[in-house]
């Protein structure tokens, strides 16, 4: 697929945070990621793996003193990093939208939620205030908030956490963006509400022909809502595959360790996990996961593995991926 057809094309993206009197810490170390229309990519990683930094780098919102050292971020063929601030401002919220967790912190507490949705529509689509309010009402209906006419005038504190999260999704989707980035957007919700909100996000993305980057630390969610899974570890993608292939034949030892964590089978987990305490910081040389890897070989400590295809469409960054299955 050529760059023009992709919604998002990230290539060799590096992000660094300077440290006092030490070498800068690289939160992202050469990330490549392509997102085609209609795809829901699940980006899975633990705290500190760089998943939120990737979302922010795509948006051009890496918090200072962090800097994007190099790399390319193409959105529908346009280079976001070379774009001037004014042009990018027209894109963010209009064509690229982000849903973040903790909806109460996201929403303005002193403005009714209906007006917060309408403001985005008014600003980006150049419609009248009245039309924007109409869109806001439609969006509240679409995210299935009960009694939407009344809720237009509700303040965030009058809504439950689940409803506030739906309002944030409504804001993100109000301008029919081409790319929705969801950063752990459902982690604070109860399981029943979480399932409803995810169903909603998926159906709205599919209806509007958009694509989603769905960032989470919970690999279980991605099994049911994503078309393709990318696993990130220490600022690098370590495995990427279509959902079914990923869960049927996980290849990277780290992916398998993550899956084993859900099994509640201590013997199985022990088999894929090195005991805490013997984990050291992998400094520069070799594979970033080598220190925690149960399949480590001498080569893993000296050679950096590349992200390579181990099956059609299935990539792994490992010298010794798990390929054989009974």
């Amino acid at each position: 697929m050529s760059g023009e057809d992709l919604i998002l094309d990230v290539a060799d993206l590096w992000v660094a945070f300077p440290s006092y009197r030490a070498a800068p810490v690289h939160a992202l170390k050469g990330v490549d990621l392509q997102i085609a229309p209609g795809a829901m990519i699940g980006l899975v990683g633990e705290s500190g793996s760089g998943k939120t930094t990737l979302a922010r780098a795509i948006m051009g919102l890496v918090p200072p003193p962090g800097v994007v050292e190099r790399g390319r971020v193409l959105f529908a063929g346009k280079d976001l990093r070379r774009m001037d601030a004014e042009a990018r401002r027209h894109l963010l919220g209009r064509e690229i939208a982000m849903v973040i967790p903790n909806p109460r912190a996201e929403l303005n507490p002193v403005i009714p939620v209906g007006r917060q949705i309408a403001n985005v529509v008014f600003h980006h689509l150049g419609v009248s205030r009245k039309e924007a309010t109409g869109v806001a009402l439609d969006m509240l209906r679409a995210v299935r908030i009960p009694d939407p006419e009344r809720r237009l005038n509700a303040y965030p504190h009058e809504l439950s956490g689940g409803m506030a999260q739906r309002v944030v999704i409504a804001i993100a989707l109000a301008c029919s963006p081409k790319l929705v980035i969801s950063d752990d957007a459902t982690s604070g919700l109860d399981v029943t509400v979480q399932a409803q909100v995810l169903d909603l996000l998926r159906s709205m993305v599919q209806e509007k022909g958009a694509a989603t980057l769905f960032i989470t630390r919970d690999v279980a969610i991605t099994a049911h809502f994503c078309t393709r899974i990318a696993v990130i570890y220490a600022g690098q993608l370590v495995e990427m595959a279509d959902t079914r292939a990923f869960f049927a034949r996980p290849a990277h030892p780290y992916s398998i360790m993550l899956l084993a964590a859900f099994s509640h089978n201590p013997a199985l987990r022990a088999r894929w996990t090195r005991a805490a305490g013997e984990i050291a910081d992998a400094a520069g040389e070799g594979c970033a996961f080598a220190q925690r890897c149960v399949r480590r070989q001498p080569r893993c400590l000296t050679d950096i593995p590349t992200l390579r295809a181990i099956a059609p469409g299935h990539l792994a960054r490992c010298h010794y991926p798990v390929e054989e299955r009974q």
């Binding site: 009960p146 509400v193 399932a195 099994a223 049911h224 869960f247």
Partner: peptide
């Protein structure tokens, strides 16, 4: 409640004849 739990396996669909609406 049990039907809304997601497990890391796409083959294990949330299957139940009972679904709870609303909050």
């Amino acid at each position: 409640l049990l039907a809304s739990v997601l497990l890391p396996d796409p083959e294990l669909k949330r299957s139940s004849s009972i679904s709870l609406e609303g909050e």
